[in-house]
Design a protein around this nucleic acid. Structure first.
Lengths: 220, 220
DNA sequence: ACAAAAATAATAGTATTACTATCGAAATTG
DNA sequence: CAATTTCGATAGTAATACTATTATTTTTGT
């Protein structure tokens, strides 16, 4: 199912991919998180959905905050894997960057290599909930525990490409983290506050915007 | 105190600027929201801090979610006012845009015209908590109630400038909302996840990055 | 200056959430 | 097949996010 996507072991008490019920917690949990949003999501409701009990879920995850972190980490693991697929055997650095930007800011679809069934739902969760996972008083501790390594390594890898292509550009990490965050923001705006953006669910322009920025900003 | 900063009346039950205790709710509330973060902030704690009771605060604000929305709306009201100050009597459209980008992405300091004491604290709250206010199942209702008008009007005004300067640029609103959101994100990263950015609290590069993007992306 | 109205403080109470604890039954494993 | 882990069922607790009531203080209109 997971094609060995890595999720940091500090995020769970017991590996949810190691048992039937753990996998049910994940798949039903993703669905419920999407349906209810982080605030209204509770382990009690999830337990009812999988015909189990709160106590069982608490044996896998410390609390719903960690459960959300797990899902987000999983998402970035998938993206990391797709980034790798999109750049291996591509010799031109420019093309590697273009492909990377496509993976980071484009919309996934089932034709992409490495596509995983949960990716779409996880992406929605990342768009709607990742701010709540990150902007917490516990960020620094969690960062210390390696919880953001997947994300940081993605930014770092693509920023290195930027540095190779245009060593004079002074803000490579800022550029990449901006494009990643922007993609999620704009897709949220496109649905809920369309006046703030020029993309729509029908005519998605996020990837095109991102390529334009890269093209205008980097000298090759 | 407020220099007539407008905050949407749908955000409060009773205008907190209309009484002593209302003003105390605001000033102490800002402080407590900053100190505790949205999750740990409660009306009970705020009531203790101002030597009053929960019930009194509930007469001013429906709940802490609306209280946060009020603070964020207030912040954008201040920015709106500073935007106006930064562009009136400036004839050159390019210069108007540059000044606007400075207001939107730069750091406020007490020497700026229109500086308000609470601005710095409010900015910190916007950086840390605005995602939690926005990414909610109630966004659409709140948007209907005009709660994001301040923010939308800022993006719209500056996007109009972009359109005047470069009518061929296809994503004016996306560009501006991106630069605004990015400024807050990068400042959060600079403190908590410095590997994701190229700005730091000591050497703030957010405004410079924003000017660079504008300069490279728009043809004049 | 004073009666009427509004605002506040003090207190109590409720439903829900986010857990923790216990314990017997079922499943797994060595 | 005995030992261990896992799970389900149930109970319980502290905190949160409110709502309700009432007595007291403050404000306001005249």
């Amino acid at each position: 199912m997971n094609i060995s996507i890595q999720v940091s072991a500090t995020l769970y008490l017991k590996d949810p991919t190691s048992s039937e019920i753990g996998l049910k917690i994940l798949t039903e949990g993703i669905q419920l998180m999407q349906d209810l949003g982080f605030e209204a999501f509770t382990f009690k409701k999830l337990a009812q959905n999988i015909q189990s009990t709160e106590a069982t879920i608490y044996r896998y995850f410390e609390n719903k905050h960690y459960f959300l972190l797990y899902l987000i980490n999983w998402y970035w693991g998938i993206i990391s894997y797709r980034l790798m697929l999109a750049t291996t055997n591509v010799t031109d650095k420019r093309q590697q960057l273009t492909n990377s930007i496509a993976v980071l800011t484009g919309l996934p679809d089932s034709s992409h290599p490495g596509y995983i069934a949960e990716e779409m739902k996880l992406k929605q969760i990342v768009i709607h909930e990742s701010g709540k996972a990150l902007h917490t008083k516990m960020v620094d501790d969690e960062n210390q525990n390696g919880i953001y390594l997947n994300y940081k390594s993605i930014v770092s890898t693509v920023a290195e490409l930027v540095k190779t292509i245009d060593p004079s550009f002074p803000y490579p990490e800022m550029l990449i983290s901006n494009l990643i965050e922007n993609a999620n923001h704009q897709r949220f705006f496109s649905v809920h506050l369309p006046r703030l953006t020029n993309t729509s669910p029908e005519q998605d322009a996020v990837e095109a915007f991102s390529h334009l920025i890269i093209q205008k900003v980097l000298q090759s």
